[in-house]
Design a protein around this nucleic acid. Structure first.
Length: 587
RNA sequence: GCGCCGGUGGUCUAGUGGUAGGACAUGAGCUUCCCAAGCUCAUAGCCCGGGUUCAAUUCCCGGCCGGCGCACCA
């Protein structure tokens, strides 16, 4: 059981309709998976549980943005730079290097990214560039471009380029101007999105762990960095397993088992917002069935952290001895919104009112366009704008007879009296601020995989081997199997009626009348169905059915009229199976 | 993307230069009836393309897919 769980899970997932590689009829395509009948429901249930905790319980709002977005979005987000990455492999040590960076480091060229790959190859040869690791000459090595975003065309003919989003987050950032209106211009507010993202991975691997089309559940929490604080007290007692950067760098570093509150006090978690969401996430993972003994939060090493991220932790899970990322928690400061503000004409700020309005002196200009126009021709407008900027920043420049401004590399001297320069006292009631962003970002597919792998069990029942999924009823795709003990004497009809009634009450029911009863129990065990109901002769006579519990295989009798209510209570955790057993014994 | 190994019913697998056998699963019937029982029958397979050959699932080449290692994972 300790080895090869992945293999068994992958096999079971194929056979029992959880997930399998897509397009098998055409040979399959690497990195694309289809969720089958069981898997699609399981995934829905995981998403619902996420929505319940990270959107509803936090009072955040959920959106659903397009998966295709136009090029400028990704120019702003910085993802397009990734598209232009160039790699060159060292023939000696095999190490891959960013070719554009090598060229930038050793030449006058600053934007090698925009240089065609053939020219970069030439540049490497001309400048005798060598491998930074082993010093081998790289001349003659091919420079490969790599492309992590799927490109497409929007509209017919000379259409505009678009890309499939590589993360759901941009769909939220881009709509910030409208979303902040919806939030009545008040911070903090959070926006969630669950949806598909696409990455043209070089090498998809490990079933649904690394795929080209994935589902993310992301939260962008917009906060005022100076005033807003997370409700840390709500999670301060949550126990977490932390793997801080300094422990990772030690020879024999270990985990820090502590509470969120203590980790913040001791300075292990330096960002309160990140700490808060770690405290929310750990119980959530436990709730959907991730084994907390194989779960940890790992801090990013300084090298793997994006430059704008103050601190970043990943949630990680272990399967077959390998750890992989389930979610990332990053404090992204104002990076994303500032980027979009630069590239777009929209405002990505909020107006924040001061407690007391301030009286401030402000330098203003009112350029005499009847002078600037004839004097500077087409540049007059730019000169006027430059004057305005200059007045804001450098009031001293307006002390002399002429004011010199620069625009497009040209200098213009404007007589002071033509600038309309003046200083006035105005009342400012507030300022525009760019919110900071706290981003918990979850991989849904990986969560589903982990939930199944961590739920996989093998045991023996009456000397027969059995495998089953110990899924929590909240996420189990089928909640109850209904069987007639035999397919005759009216038991089948009664069982069908009961199945139909349970479905009407919202239970996910599988009806099965094939073969022997034990076989049907095993079938449900394998897809993690927590409860099975069997209709027998006693049902016809006394109106009771047996209810059988998956993990223990114990069973008890329940009156048909109480069945739906009992199953609902069991599913929702309002009653345990033991309590049902005891209640039945009492009668 | 590079290197090594592999690809046979739904699943797991045996085997072969003359187109394949098992187990499990699935369906029908008999029997049994609360934990994968038995019997009978049935359905169902050599990843794709090219080459060598009288003949290729088998040998060779290429592709696709998978596993492992390296790289990548913004």
């Amino acid at each position: 059981m300790t080895e090869d769980v992945s293999e068994r899970v992958v096999e079971l997932a194929k056979r029992r309709g959880f997930f399998f590689q897509s397009n098998g009829a055409y040979g399959g395509v690497s990195g694309f998976y289809t969720y089958g009948p069981q898997g699609a429901t399981l995934k829905d249930n995981v998403e619902d549980a996420w929505r319940d905790r990270f959107a509803v319980a936090e009072g955040h709002m959920e959106v659903d943005a397009p998966t295709v977005m136009p090029e400028p979005v990704f120019e702003a987000s910085g993802h397009l730079d990734g598209f232009d990455d160039m790699l060159v492999e060292c023939p000696e040590c095999g190490e891959n290097h960013r070719a554009d960076h090598l060229v930038e480091d050793d030449t006058e060229i600053e934007e090698a990214e925009s240089v065609p790959t053939e020219e970069v190859e030439d540049l490497i040869a001309e400048h005798d560039l060598v491998c930074p690791d082993c010093g081998t000459e790289l001349a003659g090595q091919p420079v490969e471009e790599f492309n992590l975003m799927f490109e497409t065309n929007i509209g017919p003919g000379s259409s505009q380029p678009g890309y499939l989003r590589p993360e759901t987050a941009q769909g939220i950032f881009v709509e910030f101007p409208r979303l902040k209106e919806y939030a009545r211009n008040q911070l903090p507010f959070g926006v969630t999105q669950i949806g598909k993202a696409y990455r043209n991975e070089i090498s998809p691997r490990n079933s649904i762990i690394r795929v080209r089309e994935l589902t993310q559940a992301e939260l962008e929490h917009f906060v005022d960095p100076e005033e807003d604080e997370p409700p840390l007290h709500r999670v301060e007692d949550v126990r977490v397993t932390l793997y801080p950067a300094d422990e990772q760098e030690k020879e024999e570093g270990g985990y820090v088992e502590t509470t969120v509150g203590e980790a913040v006090e001791e300075g292990i978690l330096t960002n309160d917002w990140v700490a808060y969401y770690l405290g929310v996430a750990e119980p959530w993972y436990d709730r959907v069935g991730v084994d907390m003994d194989r779960f940890r939060f790992r801090q990013h090493l300084s090298g793997e952290r994006a430059h704008y991220a103050a601190d970043c932790w990943d949630a990680e899970a272990e399967i077959d001895g390998d750890w992989f990322e389930l979610a990332g928690f990053a404090y992204r400061s104002d990076y994303d919104l500032s980027k979009h503000a630069e590239h777009s004409d929209e405002e990505f700020t909020l107006f924040k009112q001061y407690d007391e309005p301030k009286r401030v002196e402000r330098a203003t200009v009112d350029p005499d366009m009847s002078y600037l126009g004839p004097e500077f021709g087409g540049d007059a407008g730019d000169v006027a704008d430059a004057l305005e900027r200059k007045a804001e920043r450098d009031r001293a420049a307006f002390d002399g007879e002429d004011v010199t401004v620069e625009t497009d590399g040209e200098e213009y001297a404007v007589p002071l009296e033509k600038t309309g320069f003046g200083v006035e006292e105005v009342t400012e009631s507030g300022e525009h601020i760019t919110p900071h962003v706290v981003e918990p970002s979850f991989g849904v597919d990986r969560t589903v995989y982990t939930v199944v792998a961590h739920a996989y069990r093998e045991d023996e029942v009456d000397g027969e081997e059995r495998s089953y999924l110990d899924l929590d009823p909240e996420v189990a795709p089928t909640t109850v199997g209904v069987f007639p003990l035999m397919d005759k004497d009216g038991m089948d009809e009664r069982a069908r009626d009961i199945a139909a009634e349970l479905r009407e009450d919202g239970h996910d029911v599988t009806y099965d009348d094939s073969g022997a009863i034990g076989r049907r129990y095993r079938r449900q065990d394998e897809v993690g169905t927590p409860f099975c109901v069997t209709v027998d002769y006693e049902t016809l006579e006394a109106g009771t059915v047996t209810v059988r519990e998956r993990d223990t295989t114990e069973q008890t009798r329940v009156p048909v009229e109480d069945l739906s209510e009992t199953l609902t209570a069991l599913r929702d955790g309002d009653r345990t199976f033991d309590e049902v057993l005891v209640a039945a014994d009492a009668e």
